[in-house]
């Protein structure tokens, strides 16, 4: 209950901000942060709970973005339907990739997902209708009231999508499915022998995770009024999606959210004040630091701190 109340408050605050705050840059930057919150949360369902590393975030994200763009170009489909279709397509991609490689050890899955990114990018580079290598210019329709600008509307949508992603992750984590996934991460053989249908659970996690990544990408074409393969299938999405849960903590559904908020905010600040190279360095250093020194992430540090201070 507390979760849903906080979710409603967050959403209401987003709508209120969109209606009252004038500065567009806030929403423009905020949107990117929210995309990373969703990606990190989605990544953690398979990577954090089940222990299967996915380097292919850009493939799922990009397929979602292109699904939306193509449907918009072909049928002028409304945004909400674009988002749903993007989720379905990326979910199917997750299922297909999973069927092919989730029987194997985790590292093979990780490598296969790298392959997925390149294959997806190649397909869209060569698909004329979707704009090929040069990309596709898209004309935004007018925003729906009460929003006076499209970016503000997208911002609120991104908040809603992030909330849905976190709610799904939370539901999985707290249900028998989450326990099964954690059993898989701890010992796949022991999980099988205690009745956990490991392959089915992994496929489920991979599909859900892929679908959520797809929805995160769905609004991207409208956000930029443009889509092209190189930036859509950019490895930076993979980096953010992997690094945020590692930084925030993989055990709890709030870990990726905290990680993504810290990381993308820091990145925005660093690339504005110093340089865009430095922001990759920030990710690299933070990633290595947390993985080595604080394997339970920021949440783990908090827990430890509270435990020692309460004694």
């Amino acid at each position: 209950m507390k979760f849903w109340i906080s979710a409603a408050i967050v959403l209401a605050a987003a709508v209120a901000a969109a209606v009252t705050v004038k500065n567009e840059y806030f929403f423009f930057a905020g949107y990117t942060v929210l995309v990373f919150v969703t990606l990190a949360t989605a990544w953690n369902i398979l990577g954090g709970y089940a222990g299967y590393v996915n380097f292919g975030t850009p493939a799922f994200f990009g397929l979602g973005a292109y699904t939306a763009a193509v449907l918009f170009k072909a049928f002028a489909m409304p945004l909400v339907l674009q988002i749903l279709a993007a989720g379905v397509m990326s979910g199917l991609l997750g299922l297909a990739a999973g069927v092919l490689t989730l029987r194997l050890r985790g590292i093979f899955f990780a490598i296969a997902t790298i392959a997925l990114v390149v294959i997806m990018e190649t397909l869209f580079i060569n698909w004329r209708f979707a704009g090929g290598a040069t990309g596709l210019q898209l004309l935004r329709p007018p925003p729906m009231p009460p929003f006076e600008s499209y970016i503000k509307m997208l911002f609120v949508l991104a908040v809603a999508i992030a909330i849905v992603a976190v709610a799904v992750a939370r539901w999985i984590e707290q249900s028998w499915i989450g326990r099964g996934l954690r059993a898989i991460r701890d010992s796949e053989e022991a999980a099988e022998c205690t009745g956990v249908p490991t392959l089915r659970l992994k496929l489920f996690a991979c599909t859900v995770s892929g679908a959520l990544m797809g929805t995160a990408g769905a609004c991207m074409p409208m956000y930029l009024s443009f889509i092209e393969p190189a930036s859509t299938f950019n490895l930076n999405y993979a980096i953010g999606a992997l690094a945020s849960p590692m930084i925030g903590g993989t055990a709890h559904y709030l870990g990726p959210v905290i990680g993504a908020l810290i990381l993308s905010t820091l990145q925005q600040v660093v690339s504005v004040t110093i340089s865009s190279e430095m922001n990759v360095l920030v990710v690299g250093v933070l990633l290595v630091f947390f993985v080595v020194a604080a394997p339970e992430g920021v949440l783990g540090l908090f827990k430890k701190w509270f435990r020692t201070s309460s004694k």
């Binding site: 954690r182 701890d186 999980a191 009745g195 956990v196 249908p197």
Partner: peptide, 20 residues
């Protein structure tokens, strides 16, 4: 032994109870 190392002892047993 292959315990579910990230879980508590009792949770280790809850897995088969839930799945079987």
């Amino acid at each position: 032994p292959r315990p579910f190392a990230s879980m508590s002892v009792v949770e280790n047993l809850v897995v088969p109870l839930e799945y079987v």
